[in-house]
Amino acid sequence: MNIILTSTALVALAEMGDKTQLLAILLATRFRKPWPIIAGIFAATLLNHFLAALVGHGVAELLDSPAFRIAVALGFVAMGLWTLIPDKMDDNLKTPGSASVFLSTAIAFFLVEMGDKTQIATVAMGAQFGHTISEVALVTLGTTLGMMIANVPAVLLGEALVKKVPLALMRRIAAALFTGLGLWMLGGALHWW
């Protein structure tokens, strides 16, 4: 049970303001079909995080190398800078059907989650807790639950949230968090503090 609780809490907190949460809001405001979006997020996260936990299970010793920690830190800084670039959505497109919304969401979330901080956290938890395949499954369950806790409200409240908090501000905040975390991790990996 500790594996599920730890995985859920860590990912739910890490997902706040994350680019995938911003993607959930963007999809919700664009397609206005929350349930296929939620189903797509669930399917993509389940597959992505199972693979990530499995990788963590298989390469636990790699996570301790300084080169890997530096690469992850630089990845966070790069993601912070990338977050500043707004997504372009064509407002002239027609709203697709539920099956297309599900598929679009699942593919987008799976790809955007690649190298994301929650995926990296899942790899790390797979390395820490995933001594058996059943523990890998528990990590996957917890991290998927954490993603859903963070993203379902974003989907359901996305349009209202966008009206109150501009996406440009949310992107800047997310970029600052990514960059700050990346620099903090880089400083630790290089023993600056």
Rank of each mutant, 00 (worst) to 15 (best):
M1A: 15
N2S: 09
I3W: 10
T6P: 05
T8A: 04
T8R: 05
T8L: 11
T8H: 00
L10F: 11
L10I: 15
V11A: 05
A12N: 06
E15T: 12
E15N: 09
M16E: 06
T20P: 12
Q21L: 14
L22P: 14
L22W: 13
L23A: 15
L26Q: 12
L26N: 14
R32E: 08
R32M: 07
K33T: 06
K33R: 12
P34S: 08
P34T: 08
W35Y: 10
W35V: 10
I37Q: 01
I38E: 01
I41D: 03
F42P: 01
A43N: 00
A44C: 08
L46I: 13
L47Y: 06
N48M: 12
H49E: 08
L51S: 05
V55R: 02
H57T: 12
V59I: 15
V59Q: 07
L62S: 09
L63E: 08
S65M: 13
A71G: 14
A71R: 04
V72C: 10
V72H: 05
A73Q: 02
G75L: 09
G75W: 11
G75F: 09
A78I: 15
M79A: 14
M79E: 10
M79L: 14
L81R: 13
L84A: 06
P86E: 04
D87M: 08
K88S: 15
M89Y: 14
D91S: 07
P96H: 02
G97P: 07
A99R: 13
S100K: 04
L103H: 05
S104R: 02
T105L: 00
A108V: 02
F109L: 14
F110L: 15
F110M: 14
L111E: 14
E113I: 12
M114V: 12
D116N: 06
T118R: 04
Q119C: 04
Q119E: 10
A121H: 00
T122K: 01
A124L: 00
M125H: 01
G126I: 11
G130E: 06
H131T: 15
T132S: 15
I133P: 03
S134R: 07
L141R: 13
T144S: 14
G146R: 02
G146K: 03
G146E: 08
M147I: 04
M148S: 09
M148Q: 07
I149M: 10
N151M: 11
P153F: 12
L156M: 13
L156Y: 07
L157Q: 03
G158D: 03
E159M: 12
E159Y: 08
A160H: 02
L161K: 00
V162I: 04
K164F: 09
A168Q: 10
L169F: 11
R171Q: 03
R172A: 09
A174Q: 06
A175I: 03
A175C: 07
A175H: 07
L177V: 15
F178W: 00
G180N: 03
G182K: 10
L183C: 02
L183P: 03
L183Q: 02
W184A: 12
M185C: 05
G187S: 08
G188I: 06
G188C: 05
H191D: 13
W193F: 13
